[in-house]
């Protein structure tokens, strides 16, 4: 196989078509005028307009964004500090903690989901008034976001020569000034990229949310799942298209930022 043969290019092109086929289908059908079935009956933007009146969808969207924002905020805070600490400090059992950090990354969603469900139902027995809902979902999301943020930040710091911080100390900056003027600016692109990744993960998560949600805390993925189970209505296509758009924008932003910081260094 050569890098530039037309055969390779053709193969790659087909794979890209394959990758985008399911997304394209959803986008195309969101403009289909047909009420039922998959037959093409003309172009319309009606389904998008109808979304405005769909209270369930609006509520789910608000829940999703609230959940993603809150959990991302806390996970970036905790995860960045962890990533920084792990890249610049040595401590006992660091290797073990390193492996612990990878557990949430590789663990099957469903296992994590039932573990948390079990944990929260035990808590419910002890704590009066503790119910499944937005709070439990937020706690769950922060848990799987922290490692991703920490890993991205740590990778970023690993690319930065520790001698930079020594140089800062050498030039008269104490620990706080070194952190403020050297470490933080170096870490920031990592924290932002990690945060965007965490945000996308929260936005996309269905399994963990599904198991830790309660009454009134339906998110968009849960809404879509139940619609798929019941049978799709065209306005779900429109909703899905909007979600795809937001996700794609986030990914492109991350890629653009990464490209920019790479050029800078």
């Amino acid at each position: 196989m050569s890098r530039r043969s037309p055969l390779t290019a053709l193969g790659a092109l087909l794979v890209f078509v394959f990758l985008y086929a399911p997304i394209a289908v959803v986008i195309v059908y969101s403009f289909n005028a047909a009420r039922y079935g998959t037959e093409w009956q003309g172009f319309t933007v009606d389904w998008y307009l109808r979304l405005i009146d769909n209270d369930a969808a609006i509520a789910a969207a608000i829940n999703t964004i609230e959940l993603a924002c809150t959990s991302t905020f806390f996970s970036v805070l905790l995860g960045s500090v962890l990533g920084y600490g792990m890249s610049r400090y040595e401590f006992p059992f660091k290797r073990i903690f390193h492996h612990v950090l990878h557990v949430p990354v590789f663990i099957p969603d469903i296992v994590m989901a039932v573990a948390l469900l079990l944990f929260f139902s035990v808590l419910r027995k002890w704590l009066a008034g503790f119910e499944l809902g937005m709070i439990t979902m937020t706690l769950a999301h922060i848990t799987f976001q922290i490692p991703f943020v920490a890993i991205v930040v740590r990778a970023r710091m690993a690319d930065c020569d520790p001698q930079l911080e020594e140089a800062a100390a050498d030039l008269g900056a104490g620990p706080w000034l070194t952190f403020r003027h050297v470490t933080l600016p170096l870490m920031l692109p990592g924290a932002v990229a990690g945060g965007l990744l965490a945000f996308t993960l929260s936005l996309d998560d269905f399994v963990v949310s599904f198991f830790t949600s309660g009454a009134g805390s339906t998110t968009l993925p849960i809404l879509i799942y139940s619609s798929v189970k019941r049978g799709i209505t065209p306005d779900i296509n429109a909703l899905a298209t909007l979600i795809v758009l937001v996700s794609a924008l986030t990914v492109v932003t991350v890629a653009w930022m990464r490209g920019r910081t790479e050029v800078k260094n």
């Binding site: 020594e166 140089a167 050297v182 800078k264």
Partner: peptide
Amino acid sequence: PVNTVFQSYALFPH
């Protein structure tokens, strides 16, 4: 009261 010129230069990239 000393300053260092590092082998890797250690210039702040940002």
